[in-house]
Amino acid sequence: MKRFFSIIGGMGTEATESYIHLLNDRTPAKSDQEYLNYILVNHATIPDRTDYILNHEKPNPLIPLKEDIEQQSQLNPDFFVIPCNTAHYFYDELQSMTKIPILHMPKEAVKEISNVFPKATRIGLIATKGTIYDGIYDKEIKDAGYEMVKPTKHIQDETMELIYKYVKERNEVNSDLYHHILDEMKNELKCDVIILGCTELSVAQERAGDHDYPVIDAQSVLVDRSIDLAIKNRKHE
């Protein structure tokens, strides 16, 4: 297969399924042959990223992630996609292993803010404790000239409940809880924009119905960048 990209997924599987669904749904295809070529590695047994980031005695996700990058690099994809925000903690190490570019999910999400919300200054982030703790988004947001707003402990606890108790454990979305978290970020913490910095939150966004909150969904942005790059590469075939 030529002109394809590799998706390192399974973190978690429902979130990866959401990425694939959006990818196929948004691809401008009118026949089977106009859809994109890609390989999905749904590596569901990769250890929890947040567990390791908060406690390095836990199993290290980098080990299987390196194996995936090494294996897929032998097939020579045009680029890699990793639809897991927290896994970007390992981005630099993974990119150093291969000459094939890896799309940087947080960078792309932050770049999208000026396109959708040009007057925004205060950027809120909701994500796993691992992403909040390790600062995956901090540099990107600050370097872009924005003021970063992190969730309070209360909001963080609610976010972890939504991610782990509902989406990961039950494959359910508590829409009321999701909208409540967004309301707290917008009205209590005065955020102009709220970045969804976890793919389980992207699942919530997809399933929870319409709302008027100013959201940048990192996974949705990654889908659009994947499509743009894949189509660009295909034209050069």
Rank of each mutant, 00 (worst) to 15 (best):
E57F: 10
K58H: 12
P59L: 09
P59V: 12
P61T: 09
L62T: 04
I69A: 02
E70K: 14
S73Y: 00
Q74I: 06
L75Y: 12
L75D: 02
P77H: 05
D78P: 00
D78A: 12
F80N: 02
F80G: 02
I82M: 10
P83R: 06
N85E: 06
T86D: 00
D92C: 03
D92Q: 14
E93L: 08
M97R: 14
I100T: 10
I102K: 03
M105N: 06
M105D: 04
E108T: 03
A109L: 02
E112R: 14
S114H: 11
S114L: 05
V116G: 00
P118H: 05
P118D: 12
I126S: 04
K129S: 12
Y133A: 13
K139S: 15
I141R: 00
K142Y: 07
D143E: 15
D143N: 15
E158M: 14
K165W: 03
K165Q: 14
V167I: 15
N171S: 14
S175R: 04
Y178C: 09
H180Y: 14
K186S: 12
L189R: 12
D192M: 07
I194K: 05
C198F: 01
C198E: 01
L201H: 02
S202V: 03
A204K: 02
Q205V: 07
Q205I: 03
